[in-house]
């Protein structure tokens, strides 16, 4: 059973990626910018995170992950009215064609300045 949280947490970002070093470096970068960050190492953990607190202002999503892929997470989010409106920034080493339509896309290795510009539009 999902909980309908009252409002979007406007400075919190969920990073979903199985690459621990990248996640750690991104947490540092975003923390310096004043964001609070939650992390998930695969798609299933991401959906659990989304169910366990107020919706983040943005989800940064990898595509190739164990257990549950980024595309599956995105599809599951679109089926849930409470999650469908959360902006998703796909950050992947795969081509843009592999990213789900409707999500923002940024190819790895990312340009941190460009990523921060995108994040500022939503958070």
């Amino acid at each position: 059973m999902t909980t309908a949280w009252p409002s979007v947490c406007d400075r919190e970002i969920l990073i979903v990626d199985d690459e621990a070093d990248f996640v750690a470096s991104l947490v540092e970068l975003l923390a310096d910018e004043g964001y609070s960050v939650r992390t998930a190492a695969n798609g299933r953990e991401a959906l659990e995170q989304l169910d366990s607190g107020p919706p983040p202002c943005l989800v940064i999503l990898d595509l190739r992950m164990p257990v549950m892929s980024g595309n599956e997470v995105y599809a599951a989010m679109q089926k849930r009215p409470d999650l469908a409106s959360i902006p998703v920034l796909v950050s992947s080493s795969s081509d843009a064609s592999k990213a789900p339509a409707g999500a923002l896309y940024m190819r790895k290795p990312i340009n941190p300045d460009r990523m921060l510009d995108v994040i500022r539009q939503f958070c």
């Binding site: 070093d21 540092e28 990312i110």
Partner: peptide, 20 residues
Amino acid sequence: GTLGHELRNPLNAIAVSVHT
């Protein structure tokens, strides 16, 4: 896909860490 993923990921971590 695997090659790209495995080669780019460490580079990604380096780029973001150095930026910070």
